[in-house]
Write a protein that binds this DNA or RNA. Structure first.
Length: 519
RNA sequence: GGCCCCUUCGUCUAGCGGUCUAGGACUCCGGCCUUUCACGCCGGCAACACGGGUUCGAGUCCCGUAGGGGUCACCA
């Protein structure tokens, strides 16, 4: 049997982090078994512009390197892969169920069913539809029709026995049929509902394994019923635990941003992203820019591999120590048996740790390439960059080392790219380190030392400063902080001598002069 | 509330009856390195939810309890 898995997003305009993990597991499972991964768009009942709402989702998957064998933009033997365009097929299936007597026309108004539901609730018993307005034959339907009622199609669910199935992750699961509702599968206007459509599409697309979020576990009996009623043998099921919120155990949701911001680690993740977003003029709104949405990470300059690796370990592990995987290794080692049953909470710190490790393994050249678009968006370098930018950028990135944790962090080093008279001084740092007895004089005299340094590279600069402090009989700390603030405008940053060398003599002198003037 | 699912350090997890005085990673806390900030290095704190069984022996199997969560649409 060929393994065929699918991920079926509805076009909501964004890619949810939990959805990505589900998709990733589907993708890995398909790749591992040499099968196909299919993207199907569940746009039943969507009124919005599907094209527009789908694009961010497709872009997200492409960025993450999760490719699909069949689906939007690539098509395939079962095209179209949009549920809305398969409406006729779904109607046909509904008719088939009707013909087989496994579904019926129901003439109840929604007020009537709601009333039944309410009664059941006040009487504290399980709600189960009375089937009072059920019509299985035209004769039964006639009086309702005469009243001018409209009908929907409901599943005629079994009312005894159990639905038992084996879940690849949770083992044997069972539900009482009697607790299942006669779910509506087709509306009065003829349009079909998700569960019918989904089962039909899965069968038509020859999906072998339905790997999805655990919230669908309780939907499984009705889907099995539909599949069996239609004469399909149901696919294998695997229900993944959901991704839980940071520091909590509830399912993570993009709507609870305010709550998550109270979590220190999450806030740190968000604040960092917001800082970068502001610098590149990216619009920040909870709907589109939010760590629960994958786009956030791309926007801030995370590595797709880091995110994917992190997400992989959220609910799956290989053994007691391996944490880093290349894509090939993931594919090689992935298995549903090693997926956990309990929800795993999203930990921003651990994600950052993966990001750092991946960045450390990246060649300088690649880091520079990643940084360029950020500088362009923020307007610090021309697009395309002039030819002298590359060497300078390389030096900055090299000197910055692990300080650049995401590509966007380059924007926190713009002191090396702005004109001398545009350099902004951090007021607090300036107050503390420059506007201080002794520091001003030392800075003034060291300025003159620097003026004679030749060649102006990091080693010579360092040698100059070392002999300067020896001559003055001071400790390095007494001058270097003032020097840093004068030259970079900040109290913290890359190695001092790297900074001097990158800026060059003229800039350094000009900046020191400017600092001395504003004292 | 009904049904279903879940339960090992703060977090992600290893553990599939004895090798567990429970291992790793992240975080946190010390210390080192050091011109700042990162990084790096060294060390430390920290968990089998509880109660019954089964067994010579239980984190590992069974049953309860508690807690957490999911789901109960003419949404997907």
């Amino acid at each position: 049997m060929t393994v065929r898995t699918r991920f079926a997003p509805s076009p909501t305009g964004y890619l949810h982090i939990g959805g990505v993990r589900t998709a990733l597991f589907n993708w890995l499972f398909a790749r591992k078994h040499g099968g196909q991964f299919i993207l199907r768009i569940d746009d039943t009942d969507q009124e919005r512009n599907v094209e527009v709402a789908l694009q961010p989702i497709l872009d997200g998957f492409r960025w993450l390197g999760i490719d699909w064998d069949e689906g939007p933009e690539v098509d395939g033997p079962h095209a179209p892969y949009y549920q809305s365009r398969r409406a006729e097929r779904h109607k046909q299936a509904a008719q088939q169920l009707l013909d087989a007597g496994l579904a019926y026309r129901d003439y109840a108004t929604s007020e009537e069913t709601q009333a039944e539901r309410a009664t059941a609730e006040t009487e504290k018993r399980d709600y189960i539809y009375s089937r009072k307005w059920m019509a299985e034959t035209d004769e039964q339907a006639a009086p309702f029709e005469a009243e001018g009622r409209q009908c929907v199609v409901r599943l005629k669910m079994p009312r005894e026995g159990k639905c038992e199935f084996h879940d690849l992750i949770r083992g044997d699961v069972s539900f009482d049929w009697a607790k299942e509702q006669d779910h509506v599968i087709q509306r009065a206007d003829g349009s079909c509902l998700y569960h019918l459509a989904s089962v039909v599409d899965d069968a038509d697309f020859k999906i072998s394994h339905v790997i999805r979020a655990a919230e669908h576990l309780s939907n499984t009996p009705r889907q099995i019923f539909i599949a069996q009623s239609l004469g399909y043998s149901p696919p294998e099921f695997a229900h993944l635990p959901y991704v839980a919120e940071p520091g909590g155990s509830a399912k993570i949701s993009k709507r609870k941003l305010d709550k998550y911001l109270k979590n220190r680690d999450f806030k740190q993740l968000f604040d960092h992203g917001e800082r970068i977003a502001n610098l590149i003029g990216h619009h920040v709104s909870a709907d589109t820019f939010n760590p629960v949405i994958v786009d956030f990470y791309r926007e801030v300059g995370y590595l797709a591999d880091a995110l994917v690796n992190y997400l992989l370990l959220l609910g799956w592990s290989l053994d007691d120590k391996t944490e880093e995987f290349t894509r090939d290794e993931m594919i090689q080692y992935f298995s549903l048996e090693r997926v956990n049953k309990a929800p795993a909470s999203f930990d921003p710190q651990k994600l950052s740790a993966f990001q750092l490790r991946q960045m450390q393994q990246l060649p300088i050249k690649q880091k520079v390439a990643m940084a360029v678009p950020f500088l362009q968006k923020a307007g610090y370098i021309a697009s395309p960059p002039s030819c002298d930018t590359a060497p300078k950028l390389t030096r900055i990135v090299e000197a910055a080392g692990d300080r650049i944790k995401t590509a966007g962090d380059i924007l926190e080093l713009i002191e090396f790219l702005v004109a001398d008279d545009q350099l902004e001084f951090d007021e607090k740092a300036f107050e503390k380190r420059v506007r201080k007895d002794g520091a001003i004089d030392l800075l003034r005299s060291f300025r003159d030392v620097l003026a004679d340094v030749e060649p102006f590279d990091d080693e010579t600069c360092e040698a100059a400063l070392r002999s300067f402090i020896e001559l003055k009989g001071i400790k390095i700390g007494e001058i270097i902080h003032a020097l840093r603030v004068a030259v970079t405008g900040k109290g913290v940053g890359i190695g001092m001598f790297d900074a001097l060398a990158i800026l060059g003599k003229d800039s350094c002198l000009a900046r020191i002069d400017r600092a001395l003037e504003r004292v």
